[in-house]
Nucleic acid binder design. Structure first.
Lengths: 265, 265
DNA sequence: CCGTCACTCCGTACATCGTACGGTGTGCGG
DNA sequence: CCGCACACCGTACGATGTACGGAGTGACGG
């Protein structure tokens, strides 16, 4: 049984990674339990070095460019050397995820009421995802239970603790909010990223497609789509600020939460 | 410049696909413009055959298992033969996406008011994503402008046309709703899929991790996370129906939309 | 009627991936 | 100071997408 085969069975839907090896080892890795080595040559690297190199590479070139060989090269070491620190690429990605979460602030979320605080949380999460877009490509098949992830979860929960929701509702509201932010950022990055990677701006792309498109499309068949689609397209192409769409959706989500809180009182 | 390299540059964040080749060719492919071939041997396959084989494979084994060689094998043909029908794997995926959308109903969404109709839409989208989980692994760098995608967009817009929102708001509300459904399904499938692929149930997994986890975690450091996390975990492990979480978030989103509509009047 | 040529299909080749395996060298504990 | 635990590396394998060139097929132009 060789590498790729085994891994692909586990990644059955494209980008699934997650604690898949020995649980104890994974946890120790995430929490930085010092390795108990005595004899032998001094290690040239540390797990943190590898994590940082991985993050830097993913930040610069995306998750697809993150290969063990590339990371190793960045550190001046052979690919296989990494496996003395990290059991597999999947655990490395877990480490990277937890690592960027761990750099987030840990103090109480500032804000007057829950709505202010949730909005701040949403904007912070948005900034994080825009800084590390590869986070969106990680599908966690199991939660990564590292210190960064848990600290983030705790801080976010504290922002809505004691406002009248029960524990399960708190978790659900947070899931809803974070899910919204991920959707919105995914949407936004798709457009921006496509421009960079295809070398065509939105206008250029549309100019290239439109003739072929008009040749096949019967506008009468999709009346509303054509009307709204062109309005939405114009809005996005025009002076419509990208942050506007984000704030619009955010306001809706928060309104929904407000209705829940009101009902609970 | 070889294949994988070129593609990876384009897929800079993991799973990006989308119209990347000749626009005219892509559109004709999507809309099924008949190829104008005269001479030569009769083609053994059709684009539709290839699309269907791809969908079947992705349904059964996920996007990661979708390789040109596998699809070709399924059709009793060599890998390279596919390239006479489809310019690249990226366009095949576009075709698959548009194809499953095209199988959706096209009539008006049933329901008394906008809220009913949006809820129906959400549940339909949820069913679609659970049936074809690989849809969640496709990151569209550009919209796929095929007949299925446009028909779906049109039908969904018609469900909220004329209820007091302007065109841009209609588009935004739909984006919000679909984004919510994607988040929720992603969440739900992650748990279910992990169980299948790691061969451990949630309880088994947790039982394996908990000892190592408790050894490193200081509960006092993350008071709210520990409290809420265990409550949420118990709820999910207990008799808490999976659809419950979906309906909870959906109700919040619809409440948010309701607030918007009310304000517009 | 036959030769031409567009067209379908295939075999091979390349760069790249994750990682299993076995070997080499290093430096601390006995 | 010897032995062993450990860090590190080279090589190899089965995958991947797809470029390239060759082989066979069948309808049209002459």
């Amino acid at each position: 049984m060789y590498g790729v085969t085994a891994r692909q069975e586990r990644e059955s839907d494209g980008v699934a990674y997650g604690g898949s090896g020995d649980p104890r080892r994974s946890i120790e890795l995430l929490w930085g339990v010092p390795p108990r080595r005595k004899r032998g040559p001094k290690p040239r690297l540390s797990v943190a070095d590898i994590r940082q190199a991985g993050v830097a590479l993913a930040d610069a070139e995306g998750l697809a460019a993150l290969s063990m060989r590339r990371v190793a090269a960045e550190l001046g070491v052979s690919a296989m050397a990494l496996y003395t620190y990290v059991p597999s690429k999947a655990e490395l990605i877990d480490l990277m995820l937890d690592g960027v979460y761990a750099e987030l602030p840990t103090g109480d979320v500032p804000g007057e009421g829950w709505r202010d605080r949730l909005a701040t949380l949403a904007r912070e999460n948005r900034a994080l995802l825009e800084w590390h877009p590869w986070l969106l490509s990680i599908a966690m098949s199991r939660p990564v239970m590292g210190p960064g992830v848990i600290a983030k979860y705790d801080r976010e929960l504290r922002a809505i603790d004691g406002i009248g929701l029960d524990d399960i509702e708190m978790d659900s509201v947070l899931t809803l909010l974070i899910g919204y932010v991920q959707s919105a950022v995914r949407e936004g990055l798709a457009a921006a990223g496509a421009e960079r990677s295809t070398g065509m701006s939105d206008e250029q792309w549309w100019a290239a497609y439109q003739p072929a498109f008009d040749a096949v499309l019967d506008p009468a068949g999709y009346p509303v789509a054509v009307r709204v689609g062109s309005a939405a397209g114009a809005a996005q192409g025009g002076a419509y600020h990208p942050g506007r769409a984000f704030e619009f959706g955010l306001a809706r989500v928060l309104d929904g939460v407000a209705a829940l809180i009101q009902r609970r009182r």
